[in-house]
């Protein structure tokens, strides 16, 4: 029950994150080109496009991480791992998962603190067209939380593999 709910939730979240990612990529393409046109044809360079492209990259890291992990696209050094049986892989995953969780919990915990600090400082980009930074900062722990959900879901699957008595296959 928990497993099925978690599975549906992470799937929905990652699909939504992927969709935001599409938008961000198209944004970078369209506005990267318009910036040049504004500079050359209108002699009126934009003072905000460059900054928003950088902000888009941070958001792309947020949503891209969620989408990529959900679709098993995080690269591993599977030199030994690749040849392990499903069960052995699951055991290795369970052993290393605490390190991933440690990193993600820190990202959420310290990321939330950084977001609060940003709000307290009322951080804006020091550009001539200022853009508020704190919404971007708060997106980071949020992304960390969703990535953590996916890691936990995978951990539960691994535990099921180890203790669920499923046949050991290569």
């Amino acid at each position: 029950m928990l497993m099925r709910g978690l599975d549906a939730l992470t799937r929905a979240i990652s699909e939504f994150a992927g969709w935001i990612g599409w938008f961000l990529i198209l944004y970078c393409m369209a506005f990267g080109v318009s910036d040049v046109f504004m500079r050359y044809l209108l002699n009126n360079p934009s003072q905000w496009i460059g900054t928003t492209l950088q902000a888009a990259m941070v958001l792309l890291a947020c949503v891209g991480g969620i989408y990529s992990l959900q679709h098993d696209s995080f690269v591993k050094l599977d030199l030994f791992y690749a040849n392990a049986t499903t069960r052995k892989k699951a055991i290795l995953d369970v052993l290393t998962a605490p390190i991933a969780i440690l990193f993600l919990v820190t990202l959420i915990w310290k990321g939330y603190e950084a977001g609060q600090l940003s709000l307290m400082l009322n951080q804006w980009t020091p550009t001539s067209v200022p853009i508020p930074i704190y919404p971007i900062k708060f997106a980071i722990p949020l992304a960390g939380f969703f990535v953590l959900l996916i890691v936990i879901k995978k951990l539960l699957v691994d535990l099921q593999t180890i203790f669920g008595g499923e046949p050991d296959e290569a």
Binding site: L95, T96, F103, E113
Partner: peptide, 29 residues
């Protein structure tokens, strides 16, 4: 052991920061 590279890098850094210099944890976000 097959942990994704990004988690391995970040997690190792966090582990050492926790033990030796916890205020470095802010470098994660």
């Amino acid at each position: 052991m097959g942990l994704p590279v990004s988690f391995g890098l970040g997690g190792t850094a966090v582990l050492f920061a926790l033990i030796i210099e916890p205020r470095a944890l802010l470098s994660v976000p």
